[in-house]
Amino acid sequence: MSDQKRKKKKYETSLLNNKPLGYMMLIPASLMILLISCYPLINGILLSFQNYNLLKPKKQGFAGLANYIKAFSDSEFWGVLGFTFFYTICVVVMAYIVGMVLAMLLNRDIKGRGLFRALALVPWIIPPAVAAVNWSWLFNDQVGLLNTLLKQLPWVNKSILFVAEPQMARFTVIWTSAWKSFPFMMITLLAGLQAIPGELYEAAEIDGASFVHRFRYITIPQLSSVSTVCTTLMFIWTFNNLENIYLLTRGGPNQSTFVLSILTYYTAFMRSDIGYASAISTILLVVLVIVMMFYVRVVDKQAQEV
């Protein structure tokens, strides 16, 4: 073992000698990333300290913290921030539960597992624009399948306005986003489940542990690091995501389904207030950086364990 390790080390040192080649191979990708990702990100942060409104060209210039003060003293901003958190947490929890149930079912040794797995991946794979169209057809108040079915029930006598009624629309976007997100949870949790040694379950079963006990004392602890990583990632993605809501409701009705990313998009491209929009998205960034620091720490810890 130690001999092999020493050998490996020798190979590695021989490869170290050609560092310039390594730098050169990084150049093309770095140029793209610096120009098209990093520069806009930094520029976006800088714009948040500017007065920059396309409708008021004369008032351009340095604004200091004015945009941030405006955001923090705006009840619209706080309302949207609150809903963004509520929405994100609901989506992550729902996606995790559905993903976990499906992962446990698919972890059983049954025939046709691949087919079921493929069918469960459909929501994740289809374009968000298509998903939004699908849902609005299903939710249609005149001829939609869901309302037709619901009206068969004795106590439902008029169509439910899934996307036209503010409170209902909020639940609808949470539901449809969770639908789009659970396959990722399913796949990562399934990978996690498959890494748990089967002997653990066998031993527990012979000792007479019930399903609930096995789940509580084997599955949950064994999955803890995978769970942390996939819920954190999902939190970040959902918090950032604009398409899942925007394509279905455009943030409406009456801005009830606005999240921070939609507020940014709307402020920049409809109200043309670019400075203020940049401030909102910078606040979004700050929230995410806090979550990210947590994520990077978990991933680093995981990498060290391997």
Binding site: S37, P40, L242
Partner: peptide
């Protein structure tokens, strides 16, 4: 390596406006 990991997580809307300008 770390930079690649972090960059995946940045909000797309933040770069949308400058990207349009570029």
């Amino acid at each position: 390596t770390t930079f690649m990991l972090v960059l995946q997580l940045f909000p797309g809307v933040l770069m949308l406006i400058p990207l349009f300008v570029i």
